[in-house]
């Protein structure tokens, strides 16, 4: 069973995504919520860092938080999936445990 990692702060402001990437195993899932959604937008200074992990980990974004900040699923790095609140609940239920990187 895999772990769900939740990140809620912008990658440009905090180092929590780096910590999360270093401490997560292959096969785990990483969900961006709140201000962290901007980390998953394509063509930024950090998108390559995430792209390098896409083959080994599953990345998700909470779409309502993404829309609030003026982006849509089409703006995401290819391979990152948008989920709604029900999808958020499914991710929590489908993983053996959850770690929040505050």
């Amino acid at each position: 069973m895999a772990m769900l990692h939740i990140v809620n702060k912008s990658v440009f402001e905090r180092g929590t995504l780096d910590s999360c990437l270093k401490s997560s195993l292959s096969g785990s899932s990483i969900l961006f919520i709140e201000d962290a959604v901007v980390s998953a937008v394509n063509n930024t200074a950090v998108s390559d860092k995430i792209k390098a992990e896409l083959s080994s980990k599953n990345f998700y974004v909470l779409t309502p938080d993404l829309n609030a900040r003026g982006f849509t699923d089409a703006d995401l790095i290819e391979g990152i999936k948008g989920v709604d609140y029900a999808g958020f609940v499914d991710l929590v239920a489908d993983n053996s445990n959850v770690q929040s990187w505050l």
């Binding site: 402001e13 779409t63 309502p64 829309n67 609030a68 900040r69 003026g70 982006f71 849509t72």
Partner: peptide, 23 residues
Amino acid sequence: VDDGVYQLKNGQSTDGIGMKNFS
């Protein structure tokens, strides 16, 4: 500056998060 530029991003839609869109 920094993440502050996101405050001026066009197309903000907060219906899904139940907060006021102040843009």
